Simulated assay, not measured.
Amino acid sequence: MSERLICRLKDVRTERGWTQAELAERVGVSRKTINTVENGVFVPSTVLALKLAAAFDLRVEDLFGLEGA
């Protein structure tokens, strides 16, 4: 069974009215890193996923999931 990462990062970020640069600054990464995560080019590390969730005051599962799991 093939699994695919579901990423709600862009949806949540735009709902909050934050730019990629603003989110990147909050979690201590580059804007390009945020862009590549949002576009499915890069799967975030556990540490980055936790930082992203904390920035939004959400659980990691609210931002990321597995399709087909």
Rank of each mutant, 00 (worst) to 15 (best):
R16K: 13
E25W: 00
V41H: 11
T19Y: 06
R26H: 07
N39T: 08
R4S: 09
T46G: 11
R8W: 03
S2W: 09
L5I: 13
A21C: 01
L9T: 01
D11K: 10
A54E: 08
L50H: 12
G17N: 06
S30T: 15
T36K: 13
A53C: 00
L48I: 05
S30R: 03
F42S: 14
N39H: 14
G68M: 03
A53E: 06
L48R: 02
C7V: 05
D11L: 15
R13C: 04
E25D: 05
T33R: 12
Q20I: 01
S30Q: 04
E38C: 01
T33F: 03
R13V: 03
L48K: 06
Q20D: 03
F64T: 04
V60W: 03
R31T: 11
L23S: 00
V47H: 14
K51S: 10
A49S: 11
T36G: 07
R8M: 03
V60D: 12
R4N: 09
E15W: 08
A24N: 01
L63V: 03
S2L: 10
I34T: 08
E22T: 07
E22P: 06
R8Q: 08
D62G: 09
E38W: 09
E15C: 13
S2E: 13
K10N: 14
R4W: 09
V41G: 12
I34R: 02
A21T: 15
A49V: 06
K32G: 12
I6Y: 09
V37A: 07
A53D: 05
M1L: 14
P44S: 14
G65I: 06
W18A: 05
A53Q: 00
T14Q: 13
V27K: 07
M1W: 07
L66D: 04
E61V: 10
E22Q: 12
F56L: 01
V12M: 12
E67D: 12
T46F: 15
K10V: 11
E38S: 02
R26Y: 04
K51W: 06
E38A: 07
D57Y: 13
A49T: 13
L48N: 02
V47R: 14
I6Q: 13
R26A: 13
I6T: 08
T19F: 00
R59Y: 04
P44V: 06
G65M: 05
P44L: 02
V60S: 12
R13S: 01
A53M: 02
A49I: 08
V41P: 11
L58K: 13
V12C: 08
S45V: 09
G68L: 05
D11H: 14
A21R: 14
A55C: 05
A24F: 00
K51Q: 12
V12G: 07
L58V: 05
A24E: 00
S45N: 08
V60I: 12
K10F: 05
G28M: 04
A21S: 08
Q20E: 02
K10W: 07
D11P: 08
V27R: 02
E3P: 11
W18S: 08
E25Y: 00
N39G: 15
L48P: 03
E67L: 15
G40N: 13
T36S: 12
F64Q: 02
V12E: 11
V12T: 12
C7E: 10
V27S: 04
A54H: 05
V12N: 09
L50Y: 15
R26S: 10
A69L: 11
N35L: 07
D62E: 06
A54M: 07
